[in-house]
């Protein structure tokens, strides 16, 4: 479980996060949604420690992460897996080396043990026979899947995904969503996904947090979205005609 308590973050005079408090549950896919520029990525990067927050507390299973020194943070970071928007694979390394990288850095396993683990992780994300390819030779969907394989190589307790579906076609996006959901259940991770893709919300959103201009505007389950009266949330979620129709039908049913 990750708890965020009253965190604020500014860049210069611009306040990007304003007094946000939220609890992300273990074994669930927690989705953070909001418009581009609303502060989702800053929130995610603040939680993982890439940005220092100005105020507030971030607790990883009751361990105050943002109050820790570098060494203590390092221990927590070994329990974190993260999938970046562009996958952030290391260009100079092959697929196999990318997934093996955390094992090389943090374990004393033999080469055989590491190779076994790499093969397992790549199989888990349905990538086979691509071990020797470089990231530049992969499609967008494959890069994301290799990114997930790297994120799970050390059996993470916390999984973060920043816009996992950006730049993917709808079918591949559904596969990536399903993979994130399966891994969350399989590893019992606390998973936080940043997205503005409403398909993802309806597919995997166990808990949804809506950020509007740096403020937590709403939180609830994916089913609550359909009946919510929050104006900002409705404007965001039901921006297109298809979504508007779904909302009208849901209201009629109720």
């Amino acid at each position: 479980m990750i708890e965020v308590r009253n965190i604020s973050k500014s860049f210069g005079d611009v306040k990007v996060l304003d007094d946000i408090s939220v609890t992300f549950e273990k074994g669930m896919t927690n989705l953070v949604i909001g418009k581009s520029g609303s502060g989702k990525t800053v929130l995610l990067k603040s939680i993982v420690g890439l940005h220092e927050v100005d105020e507030g507390e971030i607790l990883y299973d009751n361990r105050a992460f943002n109050k820790m020194n570098f060494k203590e943070k390092k221990e927590i970071r070994k329990e974190i897996g993260m999938l970046f928007q562009g996958a952030a694979l290391f260009d100079s390394l092959t697929v196999e080396e990318n997934v093996r990288y955390p094992l090389d850095m943090f374990t004393d396993q033999s080469y055989e043990e590491k190779r076994e683990r790499v093969d397992f992780c790549l199989k888990r994300v349905n990538i086979e026979n691509s071990n020797k390819l470089f990231p530049s030779e992969l499609s967008g969907g494959m890069r994301k899947r290799v990114g997930i394989a790297r994120a799970i190589s050390l059996n993470p307790r916390y999984l973060f995904c920043d816009e996992p579906n950006s730049g993917l076609d709808p079918q591949t996006a559904i596969l990536i969503d399903a993979l994130i959901k399966e891994i969350t259940l399989e590893y019992d991770t606390t998973t936080i996904v940043n997205t503005h893709d409403m398909n993802s919300v309806m597919e995997i959103g166990d808990k949804v947090v809506f950020i509007y201009e740096g403020i937590k505007c709403w939180e609830g389950s994916k089913n609550d979205i359909l009946t919510s009266t929050n104006k900002y949330l409705n404007d965001f979620v039901f921006a297109n005609n298809l979504a508007k129709q779904i909302k009208i039908k849901a209201n009629e049913t109720n």
Partner: peptide, 17 residues
Amino acid sequence: GTMRITEQIDALEIMGI
């Protein structure tokens, strides 16, 4: 610079490196 803008450096930091 390329590693920075493609978030590869962030990926290293998150791993605790």
